[in-house]
Structure formats: C-alpha cells, structure tokens
Amino acid sequence: MHWSELAIELTLMPLVAFVVGLAMVLMMRKIAARLQRRVGPPLLQPLYDIVKLYGKRTQTSHGMLHEIGIVMAVGGYVAAETLLPVPGMNGIAEKGGMITLLYLTMIPSLGLALGVGQCANPNGSIGISRALTAMLAYDIPLVIVIAGVAIHFGTTNLVDVIAQQQAGGIATWGAVQMPLLAIAGLFALQGMLGKQPFEIYVAPAEIATGPMVEMGGKFLGGLFVMQCFQLYTASVLYVTLFLGGGENWIAFLAKAFAVLVIPMSIAFLFPRYRTEDMITMLWKWPVVLGLIGLAFVGS
C-alpha cells in the first residue's frame, strides 16, 4: 500500500470512530430516556456538550500530569481505532492484532489514573482505584474470550478473523461457533463499558463521579470524547470477534449499534453492585462460561 493511502486511512479511522461514537452516546442517552418514559436529548446533544466544555473560559489544571493523563486517555483509544478494521479500511490492523489491541484498550484507564492522581481529590482517588479494580475484574473473562477466538480461527490477526467469517457466511460467525464465549464476551463488554450493574467507579451519588470529580472544561470535554471512542471500540471489537465484522458500512453500523443495545438496555434497569460483588460476579460466571467454551473450541 502506498504511504499516502495509509496516512489517509489512519486519519479517517479515528474520525469515523468519533462521529459514530457521538451517535452511540446519543443512542445510549435516548435508550435511558425511553426506558424512563422521557423524550431524551436532541439529535446533536453530545456535540453541544463537547463544544461547550471546550469553550469554557475557566480551565482549571492541576498540573502537567493532569493534562497528559487526558491526552493518554484519548490517545490510547485513537491508537486502538487504527487497529480495528472497518469496511474498506484496514489501517495497520494486519500488523497489530488482538493482543496489541487488548493492550491499547488498557492505556486510557492508566492515563486517567495518572491524571486523577494529581488532582489529589479523595473521591477521584477512590474512583480510580475502583476503575483499575474493575479493569482487573473484566480483563480475566476478556482474555479468555479473546484466547478462545484466536484458537478457533487459528490467528490473532483481526483482518483474517473477519475474512474467515465472511467467507463462510453466518454459520461460521464466532457467535454461532462459540456461543458460550459470546455470552462471556457480553459480560466482559458490560464491565468494559462500566455500565450498571458494574458502574462502580462513576457512581455519581456515592463518590461524585469518581475520576471525573475534579475535571472541568476541556478536561471533562476530553473525557466525553473518550466515552465516544470507548463505546465504538468495545462494540466494534465484539462485532469483529463474534458477528463477522462488516461486509459493507450499513451492515457494519447496524451490527455495532445492535450490540450496544444489549448492555444499554440492561444498564438502565439495574442499580450497581459493590466492588467486591462485581469481582465475584465477573470472576465466577463469565469465567466459568468462558472456560467451558474454551474446552469446546476447535472440537
């Protein structure tokens, strides 16, 4: 591939991810509103929020690490988008693969931990310690699921995984071949998005939104941007592993949004668990399901 084509793809992929992510945030808020019998926010509300936050006159910075932390949080996801193949664009996905992607999706939490640490707010510290604990909790089932998929398809290359699923049709989709792993993956997805019942680190009524408590203006704006990327990354990863990626953009977006409806619909019907309950739950059921699923992989 010529370098200019690659440069265009590497620029377009995060931009597309951001725009789709904005729509996903809107969908999340609309689902919440409809479940609570409200009208919900207008079409461009996520964009208004971000523009307003970047346009605040006061930008309270707590130091250099605070600012770098936000850049890491957004940058980790921007890097992850270039490893996620979308229809027509592969970026550097062939050189990366699942393991690099898994590693990159952890960077935002670590960046946030650095940034929040400098704010020196007790609520923020509690929040970020909970966020890292949550990461520990959902990473065990996630690693099992990703290992299972890699063993089944005989590769960690996401482009190959998609090609194999699309060549064989629906019968070769990950979700059909490995239903137990797909269910375990849904648990991990819920934890990865940090939605109720696993919303332990935001917890507005308990620890005042945890990591976000000292963030105002552009810092909170950066986290809103991060949320767009987070929703996109999680759902596209699931679509790639289990639902055969996208043959074209329409099918791709339909699958990505449909996957997100599941955790969103669960999220706004439940309160949240305590930290230890979340770990117990995530280390028990999805891990057992995932291990049984792993036993059937390849047979």
């Binding site: 509103a33 409200r38 919900g40 207008p42 509300q45 208004y48 929020d49 939104t209």
Partner: peptide
C-alpha cells in the same frame, strides 16, 4: 434533558 439540561455532581 430534552432541553439539554442535566444534573451534575461536582462544581468543576
């Protein structure tokens, strides 16, 4: 929320 107004928890 249909007017874009939502509650927040921290003064920042």
């Amino acid at each position: 929320e249909r007017l874009g107004i939502s509650p927040m928890v921290s003064p920042r």
